[in-house]
Amino acid sequence: MNTASATALTPAPPAAQYRLAGDLAIWIFILAELLAFGVFFSAYAFTRAHHVELFDAEQRALHRDVGALNTALLLTASYFVVRAVQAAERFAARASSHWLLGAMVCGAGFIVLKLFEYGAAFDQGVSLSSSPFHMFYLSLTFFHFMHVILGMVILAALWFGARAGRYQPGDMNGMETGAAYWHMVDLVWLILFPLVYVIH
């Protein structure tokens, strides 16, 4: 890990060389987050093995179609973020900010759908203490939900930066770092959704 910090002091490496997109600091953070999610997922699997019928029954009560729509929204948002990075890399700051706006619209859609889902669940008395499955369902999705909100804050910061023309070839660290975080949020959902909503 020290090689990375040492090379940070040297001039930019040749383009052909392998390069870590985004700041090393965010990658350490991402690894820590993935570790936390990973342990949580394992705990879910472990508990599910002990309560298969309960989990099956309560999983069926979830809105899988809404979950699928949310998956589509997050994937689209990730695609838009990729386009935003590419746009910034060819000096198209305006286009870049538009793509980011698109990503934020998708993220907002995710949040709205999730709020409806929570509203319906709470009305049915679902809480962290109502059953082992509900505990994991709410814990995992809410933990992720907060990540989406943080991701939106980061996208908004990138959007302001893009509009101010802050990102361009040779100066992409901020945008790549934010993009890496957003993709992590997306990736976690891609595991969470099948695990909690689909797999019986």
Binding site: A4, T7, R19, L20, L24, A25, F29, L150, G174
Partner: peptide
Amino acid sequence: MSGIFSKAMARNIFYGGTVFFFLLFLA
């Protein structure tokens, strides 16, 4: 492999991460 590791980014992640997990704790 090479990459950037900047103090400013490490600082932002520290503040962001702390606020994030503190809010989660409050929830």
